[in-house]
Computed example of a mutant assay.
Amino acid sequence: MSAPNKSYDPVEVEALKPEEVERMRDEAIAAIAAAADLDALREVKAAHSGDRSPLALANREIGALPPHAKAEAGKRVGQARAAVNKAFAARQEELEAERDARVLVEEAVDVTLPHDRVLAGARHPITTLSERIEDIFVAMGYEVAEGPEVEAEWFNFDALNFPPDHPAREMQDTFFVREAGTASGAQGGSGEESGVVLRTHTSPVQIRSMIDREPPVYVICPGRTFRTDELDATHTPVFHQVELLAIDEGLTMADLKGTLDHMVQALFGEGMSTRLRPNYFPFTEPSAEMDMECYVCRGASVGDPDRPCRTCGSEGWIELGGCGMVNPRVLVACGVDPRKYSGFAFGFGIERMLMFRHSVEDMRDMIEGDVRFTRPFGMEI
């Protein structure tokens, strides 16, 4: 076995020569200084300070040297690696400072800008108008009554004196609800045999009110109703109604007329008059259509071609809805004695009333949910 080589001169090892160690150090420091960003600096660190870097490989050569030669070589390589690490730390600090300064500029937040960029909404005018109508009648002593939107056919038609062959019962006017688990095309598949409908008016609430309460009964019945209408400028399959029912001893058409006059004047202003035109409804007898004086021209456009009125079509009157005295058959169906009690009722569409009061030309604007339509009506509560 040979003895250790104590006469080996480390300067003869190429990687450990002073000029070679200085060259590797200078190359590493130059590459660090040239790194343009933190990502590039990380790549430089791996190349010049990693396990496979030139200085790291030179450091491995020291282990093969004799003991008296290791100290000088280790000191030379160690100083070079320390200089590289120092240069890396200094450059990293510079690049991080540049990054932070750039972020402050690029991601700056202008605290002077308006904070409320999300536009405030507004209560829907249909809701506002419905509640305003309710307030009018609550002030007169009426009670607000509500009922289910999915209704039994008996409440929606039979109790209201609709004959079995009435056109309103047909599928083209009414949404029938098919029984659960019944396939389309099977018996009951059309839904007509189920006896359940989406209510076509809020009159079923009147029926329930007469059944649940002992006379006298004074209720206002607002709510959503459904019919198989096509959506256009003046029709929608889902719309809102307000109906009124009064049951008491001795009520007459005069009481109905006075109630309607008060409602119209409360909604459209003092001095507005109404008129009743004979009509037919299964649930009232006698029945009438209620018209109100045009609130724009007050009848002045009638017969005057120089003063046309778009609101009433120069007719001087605007149709609001149907009304009349409650049919005795309806009272009997609800267990009310028609020999002792009489009553009156009327109803109209809230969308139609909204179109009159605010000159809304297209009913589709009411259901599209555009805040630009609802905001001008304000936040009245």
Score class of each variant (00 low, 15 high):
Glu319Asp: 01
Glu319Ser: 04
Glu319Pro: 03
Leu320Glu: 02
Leu320Lys: 00
Leu320Asp: 00
Gly321Phe: 00
Gly321Lys: 01
Gly321Gln: 02
Gly321Pro: 01
Gly322Met: 02
Gly322Glu: 01
Gly322His: 03
Gly322Pro: 02
Cys323Asp: 07
Cys323Leu: 02
Cys323Ser: 08
Cys323Phe: 00
Cys323His: 01
Cys323Trp: 00
Gly324Met: 03
Gly324Glu: 00
Gly324Asp: 04
Met325Glu: 02
Val326Thr: 10
Val326Leu: 13
Val326Lys: 13
Val326Met: 11
Val326Arg: 11
Asn327Val: 13
Asn327Ile: 10
Pro328His: 14
Pro328Ala: 14
Pro328Ser: 14
Pro328Met: 13
Pro328Ile: 14
Pro328Val: 13
Arg329Gly: 14
Arg329Ser: 13
Arg329Val: 15
Val330Glu: 06
Val330Arg: 11
Val330Met: 11
Val330Pro: 04
Val330Phe: 12
Val330Leu: 12
Val330Ser: 09
Leu331Asn: 14
Val332Ala: 15
Val332Thr: 15
Val332Cys: 12
Val332Met: 15
Val332Asp: 13
Val332Phe: 10
Ala333Asp: 10
Cys334Asp: 07
Cys334Gly: 08
Cys334Tyr: 09
Cys334Ile: 04
Gly335Ser: 12
Gly335Thr: 09
Gly335Asn: 10
Gly335His: 07
Val336Pro: 07
Asp337Thr: 11
Asp337Leu: 12
Asp337Lys: 14
Pro338Thr: 12
Arg339Ala: 14
Arg339Gly: 13
Arg339Asp: 15
Lys340Trp: 10
Lys340Tyr: 11
Lys340Cys: 09
Lys340Pro: 04
Lys340Leu: 12
Tyr341Arg: 06
Tyr341Trp: 09
Tyr341Ser: 08
Tyr341Val: 08
Ser342Asn: 09
Ser342Cys: 07
Gly343Tyr: 09
Gly343Met: 04
Phe344Asn: 08
Phe344Arg: 13
Phe344Gly: 06
Phe344Pro: 06
Ala345Asp: 00
Ala345Thr: 05
Ala345Asn: 01
Ala345Arg: 02
Phe346Gly: 00
Phe346Asp: 06
Gly347Tyr: 02
Gly347Ile: 00
Gly347Asp: 03
Phe348Ile: 06
Phe348Ala: 05
Phe348Thr: 05
Gly349Asn: 05
Gly349Arg: 06
Gly349Asp: 03
